[in-house]
């Protein structure tokens, strides 16, 4: 059981545009890191590089538990160990809620159908979706869908969970139920990287807050430091824009 992430000199280009300009970051096992910053600053790109949904420059290096995140056999290992929750849920619409959770254990781990079903029902109970296991995603509210997506990620028993603005697509009244599930995961030993605009969540749950702008980490520290006493002008501008809006 581990879950360390080591990022060295991470550079990412979209064509000629440099979306990440040399990110260095070490994350410990079980740490909860919130990433904040203006739109377009590279937050999504950063976490999508960690499971290599985005390619990055050959000079850059990312390791998860010491395993380099490079195409090939080791990437399958990393992806099985790193779960991801998307802003748009991305549940599989042709599968029931339970089958959504069962798919990866069965197809990646070779778990039997019966075992996977038991595990799925346990995880769905954990995120409060017991009643809807046989329904299809389209019949669930946004908040319920996102909780299913979290259960689906948990089914692979990940060491690391990546969240890309998990509550940004939700109606306001459903934000809380998803954040509550995420809070319950913090402190269970799983490493969490959460891109979010929920400053309350960051203040309450994060071990560390990272402020990004223009493809760089501008400021990093405890929530009290970064959110309470930001040192950089860009952080202060961003926070005042977010908090006064």
């Amino acid at each position: 059981m581990s879950g360390t992430i080591s990022i060295r000199n991470l550079r990412k280009y979209y064509g000629a545009y440099e979306a990440l300009r040399g990110i260095d970051l070490e994350i410990e096992r079980g740490e909860v890191v919130c990433v904040i910053g203006p739109s377009g600053s590279g937050k999504s790109t950063l976490i999508r590089c960690i499971n290599r949904l985005e390619d990055f420059e050959a000079e850059s290096e990312i390791r998860v538990d010491g395993t380099p995140v490079i195409p090939g056999r080791s990437l399958a290992k990393v992806r099985a160990e790193v779960g991801m929750v998307f802003q748009g849920f991305n549940l599989f619409p042709h599968l029931s809620v339970r089958e959504n959770v069962m798919l990866a254990p069965r197809r990646v781990r070779g778990t039997t159908r019966a075992e996977a079903a038991v595990q799925a029902d346990r995880l769905l109970a954990r995120v409060g979706i017991t009643e809807q296991a046989d329904k299809y995603p389209e019949h669930l509210s946004g908040g319920q869908q996102q909780r299913v997506a979290i259960a689906r990620a948990l089914a692979m028993e990940p060491q690391v969970l990546l969240f890309d603005e998990p509550t940004s697509a939700l109606d306001p009244e459903m934000v809380g139920e998803v954040l509550d599930v995420m809070k319950s995961l913090a402190g269970t030993g799983v490493t969490m990287i959460v891109v979010t605009h929920e400053m309350g969540f960051a203040r309450q749950v994060a071990d560390r807050v990272i402020f990004m702008d223009a493809g760089e980490i501008i400021e990093t520290g405890s929530p009290e430091q970064v959110l309470g006493q930001p040192q950089e002008a860009r952080t202060r501008n961003f926070l005042s824009a977010v908090l006064n809006h």
């Binding site: 499971n51 949904l53 099985a80 779960g83 197809r107 990646v108």
Partner: peptide
């Protein structure tokens, strides 16, 4: 949608 491919890849599906 692209998100379907991404969700499957992120889960470790080949």
């Amino acid at each position: 949608p692209k998100g379907q491919f991404e969700a499957a890849s992120a889960l470790g599906l080949s």
